[in-house]
Write a protein that binds this DNA or RNA. Structure first.
Length: 679
DNA sequence: AGCACGCCGACT
DNA sequence: GTCGGCGTGCTC
């Protein structure tokens, strides 16, 4: 038998029972092109069709007793599924009972034939010019604001074996200062400059870097910082909003031998990168790092797995520490690092008062009113609110019951001043509403959204320009001068020089949300907004007291993470343990939970009723049980997908809904029962 | 997903 | 005696 005549192929299929490698003969005509990583078409006999797939490895021995088919076609010679990316995808799928090809689909963008052809042609040339460019490495920038020796271990790669690197290679950056001026009049968050400098220094050491940020406004700032440090050909931007061809070109850049800096959102962590030296992630507590598609993996976990596999450096940077990072610090897996001469951003708690200064809106205490008023004289002021729109909620004037949409049961609200009442979920206008409890037709507005706050503040501070930035229409930056910027949490724009004051409203309401992560999320939102203030500017948090307020007032947000994690340990909640939500038909869920329940360090909550005919249970597991639990749940998924559940007499013959779904490490099951379940 | 193999009711 | 119902299981 000639060598390497068998190709092991991963099929492009979401079916769990097909999530393994299939052997195919490589016919002579494809022998040349059939290399690991290429796209192929293969026959799947019983399915009677052709399947797409990727060659994972070549072999010269059959690992299968049956009769092999020949692969039909090598789609292109581009080895798009990189070996390291496949290892990452395989491990990530295995630890979450997921299907590898679901992740491959995120890792390898849709093929763009023209882009790929020109890339292959260019690669074949391999010009002297390219080699000269390789030799001319950019010089390493210093990392502004950090002691020279603090970050040296991150940027030292000499002859280190892959998979090496201790905890000094993995750090959690905290205490990051606020905005910095990178060019005349251009201000960016200091964290973006630090991450850009780290990436550029990694590149200068002859290694690639991946920097993952939650949203495109961070990405723009990061790109801006990198422009000043490295040639544009050394930066590849992977971003969901860019056109397919650009996306594919950026992706292919990571397959070239020359090191590169890859910047992007969560999918950047799945990008190929030669000689990976650094993975950095900004604000890992931001929910945008969670991939919404199956199997719903958090970018943080991808970063941790990839670091372990490659032995590269790892940086989690954030203003507020997540409980997950706190846990890794306590385990000794991450080393906390702070900038030199760290000054602590203090957030001053201010009690809610009913009696405020003359003409002040009732929700702004008089001290805060004075602060805003004074600050406006020297520049822009940020006011953070919880909700967009005019009135976030409508309630019955008689009994106080929340008004809900007749179509979808979503809450009703008012989007703009003078607009009619409409549903916040489905948008349908509620023309004639009557209370479902007491049948009254009189309603009242509850709470103030960004639009109403802006209206009120505009009247209260005549002469100030009022700007609104919310999730639907976020601003990257706002004008300076006498400007009041009203923004919903997470949508705060930057201003040159930083805000002269920051006022955090609605804290009480934000904390009242029924969610495992409320405290953590609120602290993150507050710290992120506070970081947009000028260094000496006051930051006031209205209506929040207790230990959280104390931690923020003394400039120690990490104490909140410590306390939160201690609570979760006591309650056996994530991230002290891992969780897997198991949803589906009652018998499928029962079988799945029975399969794992008897394991040491595993317990099951529920099941509870979801919608008609479906239930959901929560499996809680010690980290050490992860592989075993995921494997058993995967086996149940395979069983559920192949053998159909015995249907009760008289029911519809084929269920449209899958019998079983599993989602790991999602805190949603612990959240507000009024929300819409996603599992 | 698709499609074949396999074991029980009304037909030339 | 067969033709075909779709329940069960496999796909290199």
């Amino acid at each position: 038998m000639p060598p390497a005549s068998i190709a092991r192929v991963l099929l492009d299929s979401p079916l769990p029972q097909l999530d393994r490698l299939f052997d195919y003969w490589v016919p002579d005509r494809w022998r040349e092109q059939a290399q690991p990583g290429v796209r192929v078409l293969v026959p799947l006999r019983s399915a009677g069709r052709q399947a797409k797939g990727f060659i994972i490895e070549l072999a010269d021995e059959v690992g299968y007793e049956g009769v092999l088919s020949e692969l039909d076609e090598v789609v292109s010679a581009a080895p798009v599924l990189d070996a390291a990316v496949y290892r990452l995808v395989r491990r990530a799928a295995d630890r979450s009972a997921g299907v590898a090809s679901d992740l491959v689909r995120l890792a390898v963008p849709t093929r763009q034939v023209r882009v790929e052809k020109s890339w292959l042609a260019r690669r074949a040339e391999s010009t002297d010019e390219a080699r000269a460019r390789d030799a001319a490495r950019p010089t390493a920038p210093s990392i502004t604001g950090y002691a020279a020796d603090a970050l040296v271990p991150l940027l030292t790669f000499d002859a280190e074996p892959l998979g090496g690197g201790g905890a000094s290679r993995r750090i959690a950056l905290t205490g990051i200062p606020s905005l910095v001026e990178v060019d005349q009049g251009t201000w960016v968050p200091a964290a973006m400059r630090t991450l850009a400098e780290l990436a550029a220094a990694t590149l200068a050491a002859g290694r690639s870097a991946i920097v993952s940020v939650p949203d495109y406004r961070d990405l723009d700032h990061l790109a801006l910082c990198l422009e000043r440090l490295v040639p544009s050909g050394d930066v590849a931007r992977i971003d969901a909003t860019q056109p397919g061809a650009d996306r594919y070109r950026a992706f292919l850049r990571g397959l070239e031998p020359r090191p590169v800096i890859i910047i992007g959102n969560r999918s950047a962590l799945l990008a190929p990168a030669p000689a990976l030296g650094l993975i950095a992630m900004w604000d890992d507590g931001d929910g945008l790092h969670v991939e919404p598609h199956a199997p719903g993996i958090h970018g943080r976990d991808l970063a941790l797995l990839r670091q372990e596999d490659s032995g590269c450096s790892l940086v989690f940077a954030a203003h507020a520490r997540s409980t997950e990072v706190q846990r890794l610090i306590e385990l000794g897996w991450l080393t906390p690092v702070e900038p030199t001469g760290r000054w602590r951003r203090r957030i001053t708690p201010t009690a809610q008062q009913t009696a405020a200064a003359e003409s002040a809106p009732a929700r702004i205490p008089s001290t805060a009113w004075k602060t805003v008023s004074d600050a406006l004289a020297s520049g822009p002021v940020l006011v953070q609110v919880a909700r967009p729109g005019y009135a976030p909620r409508i309630a019955c004037a008689e009994c106080g019951e929340t008004a809900r949409c007749t179509a979808c049961r979503g809450p009703l609200g008012i989007a703009r001043a003078g607009a009619s009442v409409s549903c916040r979920w489905c948008g349908s206008v509620a023309a004639q509403w009557s209370c479902s409890t007491c049948e009254s037709t009189r309603s009242r507005t509850v709470g103030r959204g960004s639009a109403r706050t802006a209206d009120e503040l505009g009247r209260a501070f005549p002469g100030a320009r009022v700007v609104v930035s919310d999730g639907a229409t976020p601003l990257q930056s706002a004008p300076g001068g006498r400007t009041l910027v009203v923004a919903t949490r997470g949508a705060e724009p930057t201003v040159a020089g930083g805000y002269r004051a920051v006022l955090l409203l609605d804290g009480e309401g934000m904390l009242a949300r029924e969610s495992l992560r409320v405290v953590e999320d609120c602290v993150r939102w507050w710290c992120n907004a506070a970081a947009l203030a000028a260094a000496d500017a006051p930051v006031l948090l209205v209506g929040v007291g207790g230990a959280v307020a104390t931690a923020l007032a003394t400039g120690h947000p990490e104490r909140v993470a410590e306390a939160e994690l201690a609570d979760r340990r006591a309650l056996r909640f994530p991230p002290a343990v891992r969780v897997a939500a198991v949803a589906g038909t009652p018998d499928a869920v029962a079988r799945a939970t029975e399969a794992v329940d008897e394991l040491e360090g595993v317990d099951v909550l529920g099941p509870i009723e979801l919608d008609e005919g479906r239930v959901r249970a929560i499996v809680r597991l010690d980290y050490a049980r992860g592989a075993e639990v995921a494997a058993r749940l995967k086996a149940e998924l395979v069983r559920g997908a192949t053998a159909k559940a015995p249907r009760p007499a008289g029911a519809a013959p084929r269920r449209r809904v899958p019998a079983l779904r599993v989602r790991f490490d999602d805190a949603e099951p612990f959240d507000d029962p009024g929300g819409r379940p996603t599992v």
